[in-house]
Simulated scan of single mutants.
Amino acid sequence: MKTFTKTLLAGAFLSASLVSAPVMAEQKIAVVDVQAVIQSLPQLADIQVRIQEEFKDQIQAVNSKQEEFNFLVQKLQRESATMSEDEQKALQEQIIALRDELQQTGQPLQQSIERRQGEERNKLLGLIKQAIDGIAAKEDYDMVLNATAVPFAKTEHDISQKVQEQVSKAK
């Protein structure tokens, strides 16, 4: 009876290994470097230009306030020795008020710009996902992994160039 059980278990393990080996061998896996694809897209430059144009007036306003702030700080440093105490105090108060105003306008502007960049980046990631899905379906890949998560992959498994070409054509 013991020999029968051992033989049965050995047969079960052998048949399981024979079944799983071909299944594993038949899987077709690709890798894609999403960050490299994003950085190489021509749409990235267009996005930067559009965002700069969208926030141009606000950026100019903050930049002019920053220049005025820098000028007043330099003036205080240059002329503090020849200024009266009241003049120095008035200039310092003006600098503090301008600094506070810069913080109140600059920080929300920076957040708005970052939010818009995130929105546009998400649109690009959506296009990249569609391209990956299309290429994976067309070339019958079972799995596509991010190249940064894979320690090693042969170059023939890398579909980054194909994804980049397909997304570059999309508008």
Rank of each mutant, 00 (worst) to 15 (best):
I135K: 02
K154V: 09
Q166E: 09
Q43M: 03
E139H: 04
E53W: 01
I59W: 05
N63H: 13
S15L: 01
P42M: 07
S20G: 02
M83R: 14
A81I: 12
F69T: 04
E101L: 05
E54D: 09
V73P: 02
T148N: 15
E26T: 08
A12S: 10
V144T: 15
S40L: 02
V167W: 08
E53R: 12
N146Y: 06
A16P: 00
L76I: 14
Q103I: 05
A136L: 05
V62Y: 08
Q60Y: 05
Q110P: 10
V34F: 14
F152S: 09
Q92A: 13
K2G: 14
Q88I: 11
K6W: 01
Q48L: 08
K154I: 09
Q110Y: 06
A137V: 03
E79N: 15
N70M: 09
F69W: 09
I132V: 14
T155V: 09
Q103V: 03
V34I: 12
R116W: 07
V73C: 03
A36H: 05
L44W: 00
L76K: 15
Q166A: 13
E93L: 07
D33Y: 12
G134N: 15
P22V: 03
P108A: 02
K56C: 02
G11K: 01
R50G: 03
A36P: 04
E101A: 10
V31F: 04
T5S: 02
A90V: 11
I159P: 08
E53D: 11
D57L: 05
E139T: 00
A147E: 14
K6D: 03
V23W: 01
F152G: 12
A97C: 04
I29K: 12
M83V: 12
E119A: 15
M143Y: 13
